[in-house]
Amino acid sequence: MLAFLVSSIRLGMAFLFGSVGETITEKSGHLNLGIPGVMCVGASCGCFAEYLYLSKAGVNANYFLAVFIPIVATLFGGAVMGFIFSFLTVTLRANQNVTGLALTTFGVGVSDYMIAETGSIYSKGSRFFTTSLPFADDLGVVGEILFSHGILIYLAIIIALATAFVLSKTRIGLNLRAVGENPATADAAGINVSRYRYASTCIGCAIAGLGGLSFIMDYLNGNWEYCIDAIGWLAIALVIFTVWKPGLAIIGSIIFGALYIASSYITGVSFASKEIFKMLPYVVTIIVLVFTSIRDKKENQPPQSLGLPYFREER
């Protein structure tokens, strides 16, 4: 049971990164369906950087650099994907849905290629990412659940809380939400809609990329698996599940993590029914979607201009 909970949290944080990143993006009105691709690229960039560092440093690898370098590389890789998305949809006026799906296909392909070209030494970096807080072992069950995790887990929660704060309590957050709700209004109020959309998409994608890194380096202990995109789709579903609230997403992500791996912890489940279990997060998302639609509370609806382009001349 304990192992189940700890695993749920570790997997959940991969969802959390993706979901917080997508929430930031969607708050600007950008529906980025490229998140699965972004997470793949983020993960492979992180792994590649880790490979470069570890092959250079060898046994002298130091904790700080072994963690810091891949994280920066991942953020960079994600941001580049976000920039591509923004450039295509804002500057070149491409359709967001099509661009997002293309980005997913592109990201999965690129990351597979990058990983195939990367020496497997990056896997060793996993031990840095899973290094837990030193006092965790002394605290028994509480320590196991709360303090036994690697750095990315805590980073995910900090980012989620910080995002929730920025969105609801700062001027930047107010402006960003206005851009996603009603870009014409934001524009008339003197907010640079394009700049906000570019920035939020790049930042959002950079954060989402960390989800891929967290999945590989933390949850899978450094073993590359070709299913990051599945995590990405769930991250997008999580945004809906938690009605665009990053604070709620912390709990939602753990629930998603638990549902996703529940089958492995229940004995006597056949292979086929395991796949049905993996479907559960989507089912609960649909249920949440139905309920929020029925209740029709304005605060729980997606940003009003989600997925819609904004060009000033087209009045």
Binding site: R177, E181, N182, T185, A188, K298, E299, Q304
Partner: peptide
Amino acid sequence: IHQHFKLVDVF
């Protein structure tokens, strides 16, 4: 003050 209000509904 425009004829079509420029306001964000959920604000």
